[in-house]
């Protein structure tokens, strides 16, 4: 647990350092994830400890998002008149995107005869 957590934190520090030093507009944690992914691809091997720790972290994502998510209810006048266009665009955009990407992938798989 501690070893896996240390590994994860080291990759986060590396990602954050890269973000700070190069001005790449990608957050440090995402860069850390990319670096850890490439590290694992090169090693082609993962410890059970790291697998279990990542599962534990990811399974509690909802809790970790809760403090920020509550902020949604305290946006006040910044959101005046914004809710309706927002909800319409989420709903219509998502449905259209599902239909189009499904048709695309279905055709691609069919053409390849996979």
């Amino acid at each position: 647990m501690v070893f896996a957590m240390a590994q994860i934190m080291v990759f986060w520090v590396l990602g954050e350092s890269l973000h700070y030093l190069t001005d790449i507009p990608i957050s440090g944690s995402v860069l850390g994830m990319l670096m850890l992914f490439f590290y694992l691809m090169i090693r082609q091997n993962i410890s059970l400890d790291l697998e279990k720790t990542s599962q534990a972290l990811i399974s509690q994502l909802t809790l970790l998002l809760l403090p920020g998510g509550v902020g949604l209810f305290f946006l006040g006048e910044r959101m005046q008149g914004q809710w309706l266009p927002l909800l319409i665009s989420i709903f219509v955009g998502s449905i259209l995107s599902i239909i189009l990407s499904l048709l695309l992938m279905k055709q691609l798989v069919k053409r390849k005869g996979l």
Binding site: M5, M33, L40, T53, Q55, L57, I58, L64, L66, F74
Partner: peptide, 29 residues
């Protein structure tokens, strides 16, 4: 107010960082 709440609850949100890095593992698998 919400800001006072979030000041303390950041202690929880902080773990979003390692949780994001940890997303590399299911992707690898």
């Amino acid at each position: 107010d919400y800001n006072q709440y979030f000041q303390g609850a950041r202690w929880i949100s902080f773990l979003l960082g390692p949780a994001t890095v940890a997303l590399a593992i299911p992707l690898f698998l």
